[in-house]
């Protein structure tokens, strides 16, 4: 059964453990600026919202890639960037309507959440279960799906 990240903003305290864990796992340093998950802080409403790629079915990043550098990990369902194939053209960064693929100038490649190969460190680092890794069928991804449907130019219809 595929699993996915379930985010419950109301449980987030803004401790940023997820950002630290993500940047350490993927970039080898504790630097929230290098994290693939980002906590947004809405001071006026007292709300924190962790946010990252939901590995959407439509995968605009994957279909926009001109050199076949983004593929689906069969085990996790994650859309994964191959550093060897990515040329750094950045088309995926403008194609993703969720804003979750970023260009890393230092490496000349794009980076996105790959679910850490099935053991997402943001979820294990989260002390309040605001981020959990659960069965995909269970998660409420409806908000994202709604967003995806509205973005659709018609190109995502099934063959």
């Amino acid at each position: 059964m595929l699993k996915s990240l379930q985010i419950n903003p109301e449980k987030c305290t803004g401790c940023l453990q997820c950002e630290l864990a993500c940047s350490y796992e993927n970039e080898g340093l504790f630097n929230p600026a290098k994290s693939r998950i980002k906590v947004f802080n809405f001071h006026d409403q007292g709300r924190m919202v962790p946010y990252t790629c939901t590995q959407c079915d439509d995968a605009w990043c994957m279909s926009a890639c001109p050199v076949d550098a983004i593929s689906v990990d069969a085990e996790t369902g994650a859309k994964v960037v191959s550093d060897a194939a990515c040329v750094g053209c950045k088309v995926c960064t403008i194609a993703c309507p969720f804003g979750t693929v970023n260009y890393n100038a230092a490496s000349g490649k794009v980076i996105k959440c790959d679910l850490c190969g099935g053991d997402p460190k943001c979820a294990s680092a989260c002390p309040t279960e605001a981020i959990a890794y659960v069965d995909a069928n269970w998660t409420g991804l409806d908000k994202m799906r709604g967003w995806a449907e509205k973005t659709d130019s018609g190109a995502q219809a099934e063959a």
């Binding site: 605009w60 993703c96 309507p97 969720f98 970023n102 100038a105 973005t151």
Partner: peptide, 8 residues
């Protein structure tokens, strides 16, 4: 270079 796609 961060979150550019969200404008789309």
């Amino acid at each position: 270079t961060e979150h550019v796609g969200v404008m789309r």
